[in-house]
Computed example of a mutant assay.
Amino acid sequence: MNFYQRLGYLVLGSRLRRISESFLSEINRAYQQEGIEFEASWFPVFYLLSQHDTLSIKELSEQIEVSHPAASQLITNLKQKGLLVTTTSTTDGRKQQVTFSDKGRELLTQIKPVWDAVELSMNAMMDSELGCKELLPAITALESALQSYPLANRISRNIHNQSKS
């Protein structure tokens, strides 16, 4: 049992971050091996635009659950790479609408097969490893528990309960 496994929930965040970084690194390596210039961090924007054609920056930030400035920064980066185009909304001059450029649409057609392969590979891996089948339901349950009663509140309650004992 390694350091992280021994410490259990005390290092859950660090462990999840390590898994996430490793996962994203592997996904990026898969794109590179296919000769596709795409970063896994762009996936949420590309996926949403592949489903909706055009969205406002606010809609994107709400869907991917990041701050408006973070979404705006990502959109700016993708615009600079020539993958996205923004236009001012015809109904609200303060709103920026985001859509694919021709180059972005072309990239989308290249990356969709990688998405399919990622899903197939992950499903096969999860089916082959004991305990992995419950990973996504467990993550969903954890997210729900954290939303219903934040961890900081739980910790504070336990600190105060311990001091009373």
Score class of each variant (00 low, 15 high):
Gln5Lys: 11
Arg6Ala: 12
Val11Thr: 09
Ser14Tyr: 12
Leu16Asp: 01
Glu21His: 12
Ser22Gln: 15
Ser22Cys: 09
Asn28Ala: 02
Arg29Met: 04
Gln33Gly: 05
Ile36Met: 12
Trp42Tyr: 09
Pro44Glu: 00
Phe46Tyr: 08
Phe46His: 05
Leu49Lys: 14
Ser50Arg: 05
His52Asn: 15
Asp53Glu: 14
Thr54Ile: 03
Leu55Pro: 12
Ile57Gly: 00
Ile57Cys: 03
Gln63Phe: 13
Pro69Ser: 14
Ala71Asn: 05
Ala71Glu: 07
Gln73Arg: 10
Gln73Gly: 14
Ile75Gln: 02
Ile75Asp: 00
Thr76Leu: 04
Gln80Leu: 14
Gln80Gly: 15
Leu83Lys: 03
Thr87His: 10
Thr87Pro: 07
Thr87Lys: 09
Thr88Ala: 15
Thr88Phe: 13
Gly93Thr: 11
Gly93Arg: 14
Val98Cys: 03
Val98Leu: 00
Lys103Gly: 14
Lys103Pro: 11
Glu106Leu: 02
Leu107Asn: 06
Leu108Cys: 00
Leu108Thr: 02
Ile111Asn: 04
Trp115Thr: 01
Asp116Leu: 07
Ala117His: 04
Ala117Met: 05
Leu120Tyr: 00
Ser121Asp: 04
Ser121Thr: 02
Met125Phe: 05
Cys132Glu: 03
Lys133Ser: 01
Lys133Trp: 02
Glu134Gln: 04
Pro137Tyr: 01
Ala141Phe: 01
Glu143Gln: 11
Glu143His: 15
Ser144Tyr: 13
Ala145Trp: 07
Leu146His: 08
Leu146Arg: 05
Gln147Met: 12
Asn153Cys: 10
Asn153Phe: 10
Asn153Ala: 09
Ser163Cys: 07
Ser165Arg: 11
